[in-house]
Design a binder for these strands. Structure first.
Length: 479
RNA sequence: AGCGGUAUCGUCUAGGGGUUAGGAUAGCAGAUUCUCAAUCUGUUGACACGGGUUCAAAUCCCGUUACCGCCGCCA
């Protein structure tokens, strides 16, 4: 029987969940589900100063919103708890000591200044900077002397010099000359582990079978493999995904606007549309149908089909996709989500059913939920303030005639008979000799909504109701 | 500088020794319309460059270029 697939997403809570991390999480999740394995969430908060609980909450919430539920994690536990690095500093210490005892690592007392000096010399001499390893063979006396001076040691891993090869599931065969890497720090002088050390210990302890992550970690991989080997542990499979870049081809950052998943959700992107879009960055459906649920994507997914190159995050397609999801969403569900963007209005003016009608009437051209706020404005309050184009229409010579005749039209409406109402409206718009049907409609629309674009007029009539329609028409007439 | 990676329409991508190089999105044009930014139809647009290998190269190999990443007691 094949070994159970175990993968993880290991964000560090020094910021809200980033789009890039979200995509990595997605690919891990898809792979786990495809293989019938486990998707694990681990919090990498060894850098305590930059980590915060608010970010942890944001990461959890964002992942859940996208539907990427984890099988094991800090909040729900699991067979390999704890899932938070800061809770297992003693474990890292134990393994560091083991490496020390077995001669795979050593204490280094170099100060920051000494290190900087080494580095500067390397730059001046135009050769690659690699730590000299001058502390490798310190005698006990020398160590004691440094300690008396008050120097705190870090622990460095003895990087073996060799050509290290490994097969990456996405990038193919990779090889590195590890003599170019030098002995790197695994335990900081304050007793906390560095990233490269903590990941290996955790991935090993948590029995990870595949490490799927961003290609910014490719150069770390040889170091990590060396640690696995020193510990006599099984080395997992690696799969490095390309990066997500901003339209200017640089790393996606704050100056490009939204970078956190929660920013997108806040702006009114539906989490399910967002996940769908992100999945398409680096992966393509075999049948060409791009709009798919997570389950459909799982069915069609494979690691090998992920593109090895970087991809640019452009809004065009995200916007289109979000619009598709909005249009196809059930009205009551859509209304429930849209309410958040309608809080500035007096919602008690309408029943729940009416609110659903309102949302349904304006949803068609919307790409982002936050546009609902503006789209729905004219349904609230007694009066509307015509915008410039609407005012122009209202000022046209034929407007008065159209409006006064529309009073009779409204009076003739049976508001409970929508089809009949549409029929009368259609007849009305063609009943003028000198006014084009389009202008008839524009004039009424201007009076009712204060603008020239919006929901279908018949819907506006029905939702506003007889009294308010008459009121607004008369107001536009100057009465 | 060094090391590593990547290279198909503007963008996301399919394909991959012989194809009219396909789709999506954006753009453009038209249709439609209870206003429209929705919808429908049509259309512009790509294998980075140079050498090989081969009957045949966008596809395989080498080099060049460009871009990205890594070189922290950040993760």
């Amino acid at each position: 029987m094949a070994e159970e697939v175990r993968v993880r997403i290991a964000p560090s809570p020094s910021g809200n969940l980033h789009v890039g991390t979200a995509r990595t999480a997605l690919f891990n999740y898809l792979f786990a589900k495809k293989m019938g394995g486990k998707f694990v969430l681990r919090v990498e908060d060894t850098d305590l100063e930059r980590s915060s609980d608010a970010y942890i909450k944001n990461i959890f919430d964002s992942l859940k919103a996208m539907g990427l539920n984890w099988d094991e994690g800090p909040d729900i536990g699991g067979p390999y708890a704890p899932y938070t690095q800061s809770e297992k500093f003693d474990v890292y210490k134990k393994y560091a000591k083991e490496l020390l005892d077995k001669g795979f690592a050593y204490e280094c007392f170099c100060t920051q200044e000494e290190l900087d000096e080494e580095k500067q010399r390397a730059i001046d001499e135009k050769r690659p900077h690699v730590y000299s390893g001058r502390c490798r063979d310190l005698t006990e006396e020398e160590k004691a002397k440094f300690r008396r001076e008050g120097r705190k040691a870090v622990i460095r891993f003895k990087m073996p010099s060799k050509i290290m090869k490994f097969h990456d599931l996405i990038k193919g065969d990779l090889e590195f000359d590890t003599s170019l890497m030098g002995d790197f720090v695994i335990m900081k002088s304050n007793g906390s582990p560095t990233y490269n050390f903590a990941v290996v210990i955790d991935d090993m302890q948590m029995a990870m079978t595949h490490i799927i992550r961003g290609e910014d970690h490719i150069s770390n991989t040889p170091k990590q493999i060396a640690i696995y080997e020193a510990l006599g542990a099984k080395v997992p499979e690696f799969a490095h995904v390309g990066m997500i870049l901003a339209p200017d081809r640089t790393k996606l950052s704050k100056r490009h606007g939204a970078t956190a998943v929660s920013d997108f959700i806040e702006q009114g992107y539906l989490p399910e549309a967002f996940v769908n879009f992100v999945a398409l960055l680096g992966w393509a459906p075999s049948d060409g149908v791009e709009i798919k649920t997570l389950d459909e994507i799982i069915a069609d997914f494979s690691l090998e089909s992920i593109s090895p190159s970087n991809s640019i995050f452009e809004f065009d397609k995200l916007n289109w996709m979000n619009g598709q999801y909005i249009r196809s969403m059930d009205n009551s569900e859509l209304t429930r989500r849209a309410l958040k963007y309608m809080q500035q209005y007096n919602l008690s003016e309408y029943s729940t059913e009416k609110l659903e009608e309102i949302v349904a009437s304006v949803k068609e051209p919307i790409t982002v939920l936050s546009e609902i706020t503006d789209a729905v404005e004219y349904y609230f309050g007694e009066d509307v303030q015509p915008n410039i184009e609407a005012q122009d229409i209202l000022n046209a010579p034929e407007a008065k005639d159209v409006l006064s005749r529309s009073i009779n039209l409204v009076n003739s409406f049976d508001f409970s008979d929508h089809d009949g109402l549409v029929e009368k409206l259609m007849a009305f718009r063609k009943s003028f000799e000198n006014v084009k049907p389009k202008n008839v409609m524009w004039t009424i629309r201007a009076a009712l909504t204060g603008r020239l674009r919006g929901a279908e007029l018949s819907a506006v009539f029905t939702i506003l109701g007889k009294e308010r329609c008459l009121h607004r028409i008369k107001k536009a007439l100057g009465e």
